[in-house]
Design a protein around this nucleic acid. Structure first.
Lengths: 140, 140
DNA sequence: GTATCTGCAAACCATTTGCATTCAG
DNA sequence: CTGAATGCAAATGGTTTGCAGATAC
Protein backbone atom coordinates (compact mmCIF):
# COMPACT_ATOMS: atom_id res chain seq x y z
CA UNK A 1 0.00 0.00 0.00
CA UNK A 2 1.10 3.51 -0.72
CA UNK A 3 0.11 6.45 1.37
CA UNK A 4 -1.35 9.71 0.22
CA UNK A 5 1.99 11.55 0.31
CA UNK A 6 3.69 8.93 -1.84
CA UNK A 7 1.07 9.40 -4.50
CA UNK A 8 1.14 13.18 -4.27
CA UNK A 9 4.89 13.31 -4.66
CA UNK A 10 4.80 10.99 -7.62
CA UNK A 11 2.27 13.26 -9.28
CA UNK A 12 4.33 16.28 -8.43
CA UNK A 13 7.51 14.62 -9.70
CA UNK A 14 5.78 14.12 -13.03
CA UNK A 15 5.11 17.82 -13.31
CA UNK A 16 1.48 17.85 -12.28
CA UNK A 17 0.12 20.61 -10.11
CA UNK A 18 -1.09 19.57 -6.73
CA UNK A 19 -4.61 20.83 -6.40
CA UNK A 20 -6.98 20.19 -3.55
CA UNK A 21 -8.96 17.79 -5.67
CA UNK A 22 -5.91 15.77 -6.55
CA UNK A 23 -4.96 15.53 -2.90
CA UNK A 24 -8.40 14.21 -2.10
CA UNK A 25 -8.20 11.83 -5.02
CA UNK A 26 -4.83 10.57 -3.83
CA UNK A 27 -6.21 10.06 -0.35
CA UNK A 28 -9.24 8.23 -1.68
CA UNK A 29 -7.16 5.74 -3.62
CA UNK A 30 -4.60 5.41 -0.85
CA UNK A 31 -7.37 4.42 1.53
CA UNK A 32 -9.45 2.31 -0.82
CA UNK A 33 -8.40 -1.31 -0.92
CA UNK A 34 -10.26 -2.11 -4.12
CA UNK A 35 -11.51 -0.99 -7.48
CA UNK A 36 -13.51 2.21 -7.87
CA UNK A 37 -15.69 3.22 -10.76
CA UNK A 38 -15.62 6.80 -12.05
CA UNK A 39 -19.01 7.20 -10.42
CA UNK A 40 -17.70 5.93 -7.06
CA UNK A 41 -14.95 8.52 -7.30
CA UNK A 42 -17.35 11.26 -8.32
CA UNK A 43 -19.71 10.47 -5.44
CA UNK A 44 -16.88 10.48 -2.93
CA UNK A 45 -15.33 13.68 -4.23
CA UNK A 46 -18.74 15.31 -4.42
CA UNK A 47 -18.97 15.16 -0.65
CA UNK A 48 -16.07 17.58 -0.44
CA UNK A 49 -16.52 19.75 -3.51
CA UNK A 50 -19.99 21.10 -4.17
CA UNK A 51 -19.38 22.35 -7.71
CA UNK A 52 -17.54 19.19 -8.76
CA UNK A 53 -17.89 18.15 -12.38
CA UNK A 54 -17.65 14.69 -13.82
CA UNK A 55 -15.23 15.70 -16.53
CA UNK A 56 -12.60 16.76 -14.03
CA UNK A 57 -12.90 13.41 -12.33
CA UNK A 58 -12.41 11.67 -15.66
CA UNK A 59 -9.52 13.92 -16.58
CA UNK A 60 -7.72 13.22 -13.35
CA UNK A 61 -8.36 9.51 -13.51
CA UNK A 62 -7.00 9.43 -17.02
CA UNK A 63 -3.95 11.51 -16.19
CA UNK A 64 -3.15 9.34 -13.20
CA UNK A 65 -3.61 6.25 -15.28
CA UNK A 66 -1.28 7.55 -17.99
CA UNK A 67 1.31 8.30 -15.33
CA UNK A 68 1.08 4.74 -14.09
CA UNK A 69 -0.25 5.75 -10.68
CA UNK A 70 -3.59 4.11 -11.30
CA UNK A 71 -4.47 1.04 -13.24
CA UNK A 72 -7.63 0.58 -15.16
CA UNK A 73 -9.56 -2.65 -15.57
CA UNK A 74 -12.63 -3.48 -17.63
CA UNK A 75 -15.37 -5.28 -15.75
CA UNK A 76 -18.76 -6.32 -17.04
CA UNK A 77 -20.19 -3.22 -15.38
CA UNK A 78 -17.62 -0.92 -16.94
CA UNK A 79 -14.23 0.60 -16.26
CA UNK A 80 -12.79 0.70 -12.76
CA UNK A 81 -9.61 2.05 -11.21
CA UNK A 82 -7.27 1.19 -8.39
CA UNK A 83 -3.74 2.06 -7.39
CA UNK A 84 -1.27 0.44 -9.73
CA UNK A 85 0.34 -2.51 -8.01
CA UNK A 86 3.89 -1.66 -7.11
CA UNK A 87 4.90 -5.20 -6.32
CA UNK A 88 7.54 -6.29 -8.73
CA UNK A 89 6.61 -9.88 -9.21
CA UNK A 90 3.84 -10.71 -11.55
CA UNK A 91 0.67 -11.66 -9.74
CA UNK A 92 -3.10 -11.86 -9.99
CA UNK A 93 -6.05 -10.98 -7.79
CA UNK A 94 -8.98 -12.20 -5.83
CA UNK A 95 -11.66 -9.55 -6.20
CA UNK A 96 -14.60 -9.12 -3.87
CA UNK A 97 -17.85 -8.74 -5.80
CA UNK A 98 -19.34 -6.69 -3.01
CA UNK A 99 -16.73 -4.24 -1.77
CA UNK A 100 -14.27 -4.47 -4.68
CA UNK A 101 -11.38 -5.16 -2.37
CA UNK A 102 -8.54 -7.14 -3.91
CA UNK A 103 -6.13 -9.72 -2.56
CA UNK A 104 -3.01 -10.81 -4.40
CA UNK A 105 -2.58 -14.34 -5.70
CA UNK A 106 1.02 -15.27 -6.26
CA UNK A 107 0.12 -18.23 -8.42
CA UNK A 108 0.24 -17.59 -12.16
CA UNK A 109 -1.55 -20.10 -14.35
CA UNK A 110 0.54 -19.41 -17.42
CA UNK A 111 3.26 -21.69 -16.14
CA UNK A 112 0.96 -24.69 -16.31
CA UNK A 113 -0.90 -23.76 -19.45
CA UNK A 114 -0.15 -25.76 -22.54
CA UNK A 115 -0.23 -23.47 -25.55
CA UNK A 116 0.03 -24.67 -29.15
CA UNK A 117 3.43 -23.96 -30.70
CA UNK A 118 1.91 -21.77 -33.31
CA UNK A 119 0.22 -19.40 -30.90
CA UNK A 120 2.40 -16.52 -29.74
CA UNK A 121 1.24 -15.46 -26.27
CA UNK A 122 1.32 -11.74 -25.54
CA UNK A 123 -0.60 -11.31 -22.32
CA UNK A 124 -3.14 -13.00 -20.12
CA UNK A 125 -5.83 -12.24 -17.61
CA UNK A 126 -6.63 -14.28 -14.55
CA UNK A 127 -9.10 -12.98 -12.01
CA UNK A 128 -10.99 -14.72 -9.27
CA UNK A 129 -14.27 -13.23 -8.09
CA UNK A 130 -16.13 -13.96 -4.90
CA UNK A 131 -16.89 -12.56 -1.48
CA UNK A 132 -14.31 -11.59 1.07
CA UNK A 133 -14.61 -12.34 4.75
CA UNK A 134 -16.36 -9.08 5.53
CA UNK A 135 -18.89 -9.40 2.72
CA UNK A 136 -19.73 -13.07 3.03
CA UNK A 137 -23.47 -12.59 3.18
CA UNK A 138 -23.32 -12.93 -0.63
CA UNK A 139 -26.25 -13.72 -2.88
CA UNK A 140 -26.82 -17.47 -2.61
CA UNK B 1 -18.79 -25.69 -34.10
CA UNK B 2 -22.46 -25.39 -34.85
CA UNK B 3 -23.80 -24.79 -38.30
CA UNK B 4 -26.29 -22.19 -39.38
CA UNK B 5 -29.25 -24.58 -39.28
CA UNK B 6 -28.50 -25.66 -35.72
CA UNK B 7 -28.61 -22.07 -34.61
CA UNK B 8 -31.74 -21.28 -36.58
CA UNK B 9 -33.60 -24.22 -35.13
CA UNK B 10 -32.56 -23.30 -31.62
CA UNK B 11 -33.91 -19.81 -32.17
CA UNK B 12 -37.09 -21.20 -33.66
CA UNK B 13 -37.50 -23.69 -30.82
CA UNK B 14 -37.38 -20.77 -28.41
CA UNK B 15 -40.31 -19.13 -30.15
CA UNK B 16 -38.40 -16.56 -32.15
CA UNK B 17 -39.43 -15.75 -35.69
CA UNK B 18 -36.93 -16.60 -38.34
CA UNK B 19 -36.35 -13.47 -40.33
CA UNK B 20 -33.86 -13.00 -43.11
CA UNK B 21 -31.67 -10.93 -40.87
CA UNK B 22 -31.58 -13.60 -38.21
CA UNK B 23 -30.62 -16.20 -40.79
CA UNK B 24 -27.75 -14.01 -41.90
CA UNK B 25 -26.78 -13.40 -38.30
CA UNK B 26 -26.80 -17.12 -37.59
CA UNK B 27 -24.66 -17.74 -40.63
CA UNK B 28 -22.23 -15.02 -39.64
CA UNK B 29 -21.67 -16.48 -36.20
CA UNK B 30 -21.61 -20.04 -37.48
CA UNK B 31 -18.80 -19.09 -39.84
CA UNK B 32 -16.87 -16.75 -37.54
CA UNK B 33 -14.37 -18.54 -35.38
CA UNK B 34 -13.91 -15.64 -32.97
CA UNK B 35 -15.39 -12.68 -31.19
CA UNK B 36 -17.32 -10.01 -33.05
CA UNK B 37 -18.16 -6.52 -31.88
CA UNK B 38 -21.62 -5.06 -32.54
CA UNK B 39 -19.95 -2.89 -35.15
CA UNK B 40 -18.38 -5.91 -36.86
CA UNK B 41 -21.81 -7.45 -37.02
CA UNK B 42 -23.41 -4.27 -38.26
CA UNK B 43 -20.80 -3.85 -41.00
CA UNK B 44 -21.21 -7.42 -42.15
CA UNK B 45 -24.99 -7.30 -42.11
CA UNK B 46 -24.94 -3.93 -43.82
CA UNK B 47 -23.52 -5.55 -46.92
CA UNK B 48 -26.75 -7.50 -47.32
CA UNK B 49 -29.37 -5.10 -45.99
CA UNK B 50 -29.23 -1.55 -47.20
CA UNK B 51 -31.68 -0.06 -44.70
CA UNK B 52 -30.14 -1.88 -41.75
CA UNK B 53 -30.30 -0.13 -38.43
CA UNK B 54 -27.94 -0.52 -35.50
CA UNK B 55 -30.70 -1.01 -33.01
CA UNK B 56 -31.95 -4.15 -34.71
CA UNK B 57 -28.46 -5.56 -34.58
CA UNK B 58 -28.27 -4.80 -30.88
CA UNK B 59 -31.71 -6.23 -30.28
CA UNK B 60 -30.85 -9.47 -32.00
CA UNK B 61 -27.52 -9.79 -30.29
CA UNK B 62 -29.18 -9.25 -26.95
CA UNK B 63 -31.99 -11.70 -27.65
CA UNK B 64 -29.56 -14.36 -28.80
CA UNK B 65 -27.43 -13.76 -25.77
CA UNK B 66 -30.42 -14.09 -23.44
CA UNK B 67 -31.33 -17.35 -25.14
CA UNK B 68 -27.84 -18.66 -24.52
CA UNK B 69 -27.00 -18.90 -28.21
CA UNK B 70 -24.36 -16.21 -27.99
CA UNK B 71 -22.02 -15.32 -25.21
CA UNK B 72 -20.87 -11.84 -24.43
CA UNK B 73 -17.44 -10.84 -23.16
CA UNK B 74 -16.05 -7.48 -22.09
CA UNK B 75 -12.76 -6.53 -23.66
CA UNK B 76 -10.80 -3.33 -23.21
CA UNK B 77 -12.27 -2.13 -26.50
CA UNK B 78 -15.82 -2.99 -25.50
CA UNK B 79 -18.35 -5.78 -25.67
CA UNK B 80 -17.94 -8.63 -28.13
CA UNK B 81 -19.96 -11.72 -28.99
CA UNK B 82 -19.37 -15.25 -30.13
CA UNK B 83 -21.32 -18.48 -30.23
CA UNK B 84 -21.80 -19.83 -26.75
CA UNK B 85 -19.50 -22.79 -26.23
CA UNK B 86 -21.50 -25.97 -26.24
CA UNK B 87 -18.76 -28.12 -24.81
CA UNK B 88 -19.84 -29.46 -21.48
CA UNK B 89 -16.61 -29.35 -19.62
CA UNK B 90 -15.45 -26.10 -18.19
CA UNK B 91 -12.66 -24.56 -20.20
CA UNK B 92 -10.91 -21.31 -21.13
CA UNK B 93 -9.62 -19.70 -24.30
CA UNK B 94 -6.66 -18.50 -26.23
CA UNK B 95 -7.81 -15.39 -28.06
CA UNK B 96 -6.10 -13.93 -31.10
CA UNK B 97 -5.62 -10.18 -30.74
CA UNK B 98 -5.75 -9.74 -34.48
CA UNK B 99 -8.56 -11.88 -35.86
CA UNK B 100 -10.41 -12.61 -32.60
CA UNK B 101 -10.35 -16.34 -33.22
CA UNK B 102 -10.45 -18.49 -30.09
CA UNK B 103 -8.92 -21.82 -29.18
CA UNK B 104 -10.01 -23.82 -26.15
CA UNK B 105 -7.68 -24.48 -23.24
CA UNK B 106 -8.70 -27.45 -21.18
CA UNK B 107 -6.53 -26.42 -18.28
CA UNK B 108 -8.32 -24.57 -15.51
CA UNK B 109 -6.13 -22.65 -13.09
CA UNK B 110 -8.61 -22.74 -10.22
CA UNK B 111 -7.52 -26.22 -9.28
CA UNK B 112 -4.05 -24.98 -8.46
CA UNK B 113 -4.99 -21.68 -6.94
CA UNK B 114 -4.62 -21.33 -3.21
CA UNK B 115 -7.45 -19.19 -1.90
CA UNK B 116 -7.69 -17.97 1.71
CA UNK B 117 -10.29 -19.88 3.75
CA UNK B 118 -12.29 -16.77 4.30
CA UNK B 119 -12.75 -15.91 0.66
CA UNK B 120 -15.76 -17.57 -0.97
CA UNK B 121 -15.04 -18.00 -4.68
CA UNK B 122 -17.96 -17.48 -7.03
CA UNK B 123 -16.44 -17.32 -10.48
CA UNK B 124 -13.22 -16.69 -12.31
CA UNK B 125 -11.85 -15.48 -15.59
CA UNK B 126 -8.81 -16.80 -17.36
CA UNK B 127 -7.98 -15.63 -20.85
CA UNK B 128 -4.78 -15.81 -22.83
CA UNK B 129 -4.19 -13.25 -25.57
CA UNK B 130 -1.73 -13.40 -28.39
CA UNK B 131 -1.43 -14.04 -32.10
CA UNK B 132 -2.57 -17.17 -33.83
CA UNK B 133 -0.62 -18.88 -36.56
CA UNK B 134 -2.30 -16.94 -39.35
CA UNK B 135 -1.83 -13.57 -37.69
CA UNK B 136 1.71 -13.95 -36.41
CA UNK B 137 3.00 -10.75 -37.91
CA UNK B 138 1.96 -9.14 -34.60
CA UNK B 139 3.25 -5.81 -33.38
CA UNK B 140 6.64 -6.50 -31.77
C1' DG C 1 2.82 36.04 -14.73
C1' DT C 2 1.95 31.86 -17.11
C1' DA C 3 0.73 27.35 -17.97
C1' DT C 4 -2.14 24.15 -15.91
C1' DC C 5 -6.78 23.00 -13.73
C1' DT C 6 -11.38 23.48 -13.29
C1' DG C 7 -16.40 23.94 -14.34
C1' DC C 8 -19.61 24.57 -17.74
C1' DA C 9 -21.79 23.43 -21.87
C1' DA C 10 -21.87 20.95 -25.64
C1' DA C 11 -20.25 17.20 -28.45
C1' DC C 12 -19.65 12.47 -28.92
C1' DC C 13 -20.24 7.48 -29.04
C1' DA C 14 -22.40 3.24 -27.88
C1' DT C 15 -26.60 1.47 -26.56
C1' DT C 16 -31.66 1.56 -25.55
C1' DT C 17 -36.53 2.80 -26.11
C1' DG C 18 -41.20 4.22 -28.20
C1' DC C 19 -43.83 3.96 -31.95
C1' DA C 20 -45.73 3.08 -36.50
C1' DT C 21 -45.00 -0.10 -40.26
C1' DT C 22 -43.82 -4.55 -42.05
C1' DC C 23 -43.69 -9.39 -42.01
C1' DA C 24 -43.40 -14.48 -40.18
C1' DG C 25 -46.37 -17.77 -38.31
C1' DC D 1 -54.91 -12.24 -38.96
C1' DT D 2 -51.94 -11.33 -34.93
C1' DG D 3 -48.00 -10.68 -32.46
C1' DA D 4 -43.32 -10.23 -33.16
C1' DA D 5 -39.52 -7.87 -35.81
C1' DT D 6 -37.88 -3.88 -38.12
C1' DG D 7 -36.48 1.02 -39.11
C1' DC D 8 -36.66 5.45 -37.71
C1' DA D 9 -36.03 9.04 -34.57
C1' DA D 10 -35.21 10.34 -30.29
C1' DA D 11 -33.64 9.43 -25.52
C1' DT D 12 -30.15 7.80 -22.59
C1' DG D 13 -25.71 7.03 -20.12
C1' DG D 14 -20.98 7.24 -20.04
C1' DT D 15 -17.09 9.74 -21.60
C1' DT D 16 -14.53 13.48 -24.09
C1' DT D 17 -13.63 18.17 -25.81
C1' DG D 18 -13.40 23.47 -26.32
C1' DC D 19 -13.29 27.36 -24.00
C1' DA D 20 -13.15 31.05 -20.42
C1' DG D 21 -12.17 31.91 -15.78
C1' DA D 22 -9.55 30.33 -11.55
C1' DT D 23 -5.37 28.70 -9.42
C1' DA D 24 -0.62 26.38 -8.43
C1' DC D 25 3.94 27.31 -9.07
Amino acid sequence: MQNTEDIISRLSAQGLRITDQRKTLARLFAESPGYLSPKDVYDYMGKYYSGLSFDTVYRNLRVMEELGVLEQVMFEEGVKFKLHCREHDHHHHLICLNCGKTYPITYCPMEQTAVPDRFRVVRHKFEVFGYCEDCSEGDN
